[in-house]
């Protein structure tokens, strides 16, 4: 009778009487000691955490960022595609119309007055990033910080929108270095986020 085998590592074990060498344990203990002593001199795999940090993978998806364009205007036009794409239904958007004199704050005529992501619901799948037609939302390389209460995990625009004066690089909050020169925005007048 042939039994379906999923791997070639299957090993059929049969209970049998131990040989003398096995029953006195000592050879087995000795070989075990040799294994552990080899590990004693091996290179250690510890990462000294606060001083040394392991880099994230290039495709790491961390907390979200709402991008601004080169003139510091918010990209988001509150189309709601990200909220539709979100499988965890973590995104809430309230749209508003851009008034006169706000052209330096929002790129399109419509913008998100409220943009909230519930970080406890979010599964960091990145579908919002793929759905966005305006390159407004990205998942950065930062991890979402821990907190003590549930309401602290609902990230509003105050936490999500990219701070002024930071890079156009989609994946990071940090200044984007190009030709060894940090990328600089021209600060728009009357900045209010």
């Amino acid at each position: 009778m042939s039994v379906l085998s999923l791997t070639n590592r299957k090993k059929v074990l049969q209970k049998r009487k131990l040989t003398f060498a096995e029953s006195i344990y000592l050879p087995a203990i000795f070989s075990g000691l040799m294994i552990t002593i080899r590990h004693f001199f091996r290179r250690k795999s510890t990462v000294q955490y606060p001083e040394v940090k392991k880099p994230f993978s290039k495709v790491f998806r961390g907390r979200h960022i709402l991008k601004r364009d080169e003139q510091g205007r918010e990209n988001c036009t509150a189309c709601g595609l990200c909220a539709v794409a979100c499988p965890a239904e973590a995104i809430t958007i309230v749209a508003a119309e851009r008034k006169k004199g706000e052209e330096h704050l929002y790129r399109e005529e419509k913008y998100a007055a409220v943009y909230e992501i519930n970080m406890l619901r979010c599964i960091f799948c990145g579908l919002c990033e793929e759905a966005c037609p305006k390159d407004a939302i990205y998942l950065t390389e930062e991890t979402a910080p821990a907190s003590y209460s549930r309401k602290d995990f609902i990230f509003g625009k105050d936490k999500l929108v990219q701070p002024l004066g930071t890079s156009a690089h989609p994946k990071t909050f940090k200044p984007y270095v190009k030709d060894n020169k940090p990328y600089q925005y021209k600060n728009p007048v009357n900045t209010k986020i």
Partner: peptide, 10 residues
């Protein structure tokens, strides 16, 4: 220390 070293830790 010994336990750590035997287990590839520091």
């Amino acid at each position: 220390k010994v336990s750590a070293f035997l287990q590839d830790r520091i």
